[in-house]
Every structure is written in structure tokens, then in C-alpha cells.
Measured scan of single mutants.
Amino acid sequence: MDETGKELVLALYDYQEKSPREVTMKKGDILTLLNSTNKDWWKVEVNDRQGFVPAAYVKKL
């Protein structure tokens, strides 16, 4: 969790967005987890953008 109590995830792999609903991340990025109710796609925030990334590409910290 960060200082505001939000849950964080670590990008395990690079991911290039394939639609406007997704976000690009690089391996090693720390992202804010917004929603993990879907087992396949998690909603995150990175670089002031919100979108989805494959759940298998990130790990909760």
C-alpha cells in the first residue's frame, strides 16, 4: 500500500495497450490497483492514466 492506503501492484512484464481501455506498463513499474474483481483484467492507474492490464502480468505488493 502507498501512503494513501491504496493497494499497489508490480508490473512483472512489459505490456503495450491494445485498446483505449488499457494502459501501457513496463516491467518494474509500480501501479495503483483500482479494481481486481475480474480474474483476468485488473484496473490500475499509472502515470495519471486509468485502464486495464492483464492480471497475470502484475503482482500485488
Results as ranks from 00 to 15, higher is better:
residue 34 L to M: 07
residue 56 A to G: 11
residue 59 K to M: 14
residue 18 K to E: 08
residue 39 K to I: 10
residue 3 E to F: 10
residue 54 P to Y: 02
residue 5 G to Y: 14
residue 34 L to I: 15
residue 52 F to I: 06
residue 59 K to G: 09
residue 42 W to Y: 07
residue 24 T to W: 04
residue 18 K to F: 06
residue 10 L to K: 08
residue 52 F to V: 07
residue 10 L to G: 03
residue 20 P to Q: 08
residue 56 A to R: 15
residue 48 D to W: 07
residue 44 V to K: 00
residue 22 E to Q: 09
residue 56 A to P: 08
residue 40 D to F: 15
residue 26 K to S: 09
residue 1 M to H: 13
residue 23 V to N: 04
residue 30 I to S: 03
residue 57 Y to W: 06
residue 23 V to A: 05
residue 2 D to P: 14
residue 57 Y to R: 05
residue 26 K to Q: 09
residue 25 M to E: 00
residue 57 Y to Q: 05
residue 25 M to Y: 01
residue 34 L to W: 05
residue 13 Y to G: 05
residue 50 Q to A: 12
residue 6 K to M: 10
residue 54 P to V: 02
residue 1 M to Q: 14
residue 11 A to V: 10
residue 42 W to D: 00
residue 4 T to A: 13
residue 8 L to M: 11
residue 58 V to T: 04
residue 10 L to R: 08
residue 44 V to D: 01
residue 24 T to K: 03
residue 49 R to I: 07
residue 40 D to Y: 15
residue 24 T to H: 04
residue 2 D to W: 15
residue 43 K to D: 03
residue 22 E to P: 05
residue 44 V to F: 00
residue 42 W to G: 00
residue 19 S to Q: 07
residue 37 T to I: 08
residue 37 T to K: 11
residue 40 D to N: 13
residue 39 K to Q: 12
residue 2 D to M: 13
residue 29 D to E: 11
residue 16 Q to T: 14
residue 28 G to L: 02
residue 47 N to A: 12
residue 48 D to V: 06
residue 50 Q to Y: 06
residue 41 W to R: 02
residue 5 G to P: 14
residue 7 E to A: 10
residue 47 N to P: 08
residue 17 E to K: 13
residue 39 K to G: 09
residue 45 E to H: 07
residue 1 M to C: 13
residue 38 N to Y: 08
residue 41 W to D: 01
residue 27 K to S: 07
residue 36 S to Y: 07
residue 31 L to C: 10
residue 6 K to L: 11
residue 52 F to E: 04
residue 12 L to W: 04
residue 24 T to N: 06
residue 40 D to S: 11
residue 32 T to R: 12
residue 14 D to H: 06
residue 52 F to C: 10
residue 21 R to E: 12
residue 44 V to G: 00
residue 52 F to S: 03
residue 1 M to K: 12
residue 25 M to T: 03
residue 36 S to H: 09
residue 45 E to I: 09
residue 30 I to H: 04
residue 32 T to L: 14
residue 31 L to T: 01
residue 13 Y to S: 07
residue 6 K to P: 13
residue 33 L to P: 00
residue 25 M to V: 09
residue 53 V to P: 01
residue 39 K to F: 08
residue 55 A to K: 07
residue 52 F to G: 01
residue 8 L to R: 09
residue 9 V to T: 02
residue 58 V to E: 01
residue 5 G to E: 13
residue 21 R to I: 13
residue 6 K to I: 13
residue 43 K to F: 15
